[in-house]
Design a protein around this nucleic acid. Structure first.
Length: 386
DNA sequence: AATACGTGGTA
DNA sequence: TTACCAAGTAT
């Protein structure tokens, strides 16, 4: 037995894949795998989209730019990432400059991109590369994997794209392309190991970085989630799902649980000169290290107005701003009631509001702060008609 | 293994 | 409006 994958579109492929998982070193004779890379690379050479982090064809990509872009692109679209990437490389042209910057500055530049642990790990990673690697990126997947914020996908992506190592980054695009190519019906995330193995069988001996990017481009532009453009696809004659007419239903996913609702009260404390009271959140966890408007905890019930007044950061004439702010996080929905008050310069703050993690920020400086989108919403809501 | 962790776009 | 989705990682 040599770990041959059966790909017949009749539902027996999973047996072969399971064997391959246990013996990833086994030789794979896959009747269609051989043809995939050349067809895909030919398509990539014609259709390849330029992006600010990509090198010109035939040139070597800058590892710093590849790394930065890959971290930003985790769970985030190219369209959203592009302006952030441009701003980052303009401000921090290399790892050392990023490592020499205060975390909060990096968080402020990251504000709005989401998943802020990425920014904290980005900063930690830059420091580690300077301190432990002389300011140069490790050149292989295994060493990259040891760095903060770099997981299996990103390690393989950097190793292949920036250093030409023959490894196989598998992201959501690759999972979708491969699940259709081989008609893998097993739902995600259960099928992840199988899809990884299958993807690895497709990776060519040369141009592995181009191949990786081609797979992702294909998933992003042709082999799309809802209505894939099979007529435009360079792999359409090899695609088992298409032969079976089930491409639009793959990959299958186990349904996600529902998002609970949480509620809270946020306080816009306005000093007489217009400065707003902000508070730094704990370094880890949700929106870790970011700034916020002081607020109650976010729980399953809305605190009473009486409780809210007891918690307010200062005594004052708190006015309940009409309507509420709703925001959707990945794992819960938040509804915030906003109270506003003008606080005199000499007004005493409550104990918790008088801590170092709280600070008054002038209105004009709000844009440059490390405020997550939800807090920008809250502030805009609280300051409307002012 | 399952859950925590953001945001904006699209149907 | 609801629901799903997008170049995942850490614990």
């Amino acid at each position: 037995m040599h770990g041959v994958i059966r790909v017949d579109g009749q539902g027996t492929q999973m047996a072969g894949v399971a064997k391959l998982q246990r013996r990833p070193q086994a030789t794979v004779r896959n009747p269609i795998a051989r043809d995939i890379a050349p067809a895909l690379l030919g398509w990539y050479d014609r259709e390849r989209r330029q992006m600010p982090w990509r090198a010109e064809l035939g040139e070597r990509a800058d590892p710093y730019r590849v790394w930065l872009s890959e971290i930003m692109l985790q769970q985030t679209t190219v369209k959203t990432v592009t302006p952030y990437f441009e701003a980052f490389v303009a401000r921090w042209p290399d790892v050392r400059s990023l490592a020499d910057t205060e975390l909060e500055e990096v968080l402020a530049a990251w504000a709005g991109l989401g998943y802020y642990s990425r920014a904290r790990n980005l900063h930690a990673c830059a420091k580690a590369i300077v301190a432990e690697h002389g300011g140069r990126f490790p050149k292989n997947e295994a060493k990259l994997l040891e760095l903060p914020g770099i997981g299996p996908y990103t390690a393989a992506a950097i190793a292949s794209i920036a250093f030409g190592e023959r490894v196989t980054p598998v992201d959501g695009n690759v999972e979708r392309v491969v699940s259709r190519l081989f008609a893998v019906r097993e739902p995600l995330p259960l099928s992840k190991p199988a899809l990884r193995s299958l993807a690895a069988t497709l990776t060519p001996m040369t141009r592995t970085g181009d191949f990786a990017q081609a797979m992702m481009d294909l998933g992003a532009t042709v082999c799309t989630p809802k209505s894939p453009s099979c007529l435009m696809c360079p792999l359409n004659s090899d695609c088992t799902a298409r032969k079976l007419g089930i491409e639009a239903r793959l990959p299958a996913r186990t349904p996600k649980g529902e998002r609970p609702a949480r509620f809270g009260i946020a306080f816009i404390a306005l000093r007489e000169d217009g400065a707003v009271l902000l508070r730094k959140r704990p370094e880890n966890g949700l929106l870790g290290g970011m700034l916020e408007v002081p607020s109650t905890d976010w729980l399953d019930m809305l605190p009473s107005a009486t409780d809210a007044m007891r918690i307010a950061p200062a005594k004052g004439d708190w006015w309940k701003v009409p309507s509420t702010v709703r925001h959707v996080f990945s794992h819960f929905e938040l509804e915030l009631v906003v109270y506003r008050a003008v606080v005199p310069f000499d007004a005493p703050l409550t104990f918790w509001a008088d801590q170092p993690r709280c600070r008054w920020v002038p209105r004009r400086d709000l844009d440059s702060q490390a405020l997550p989108s939800v807090m920008k919403k809250v502030i805009a809501h609280g300051l409307r008609e002012m």
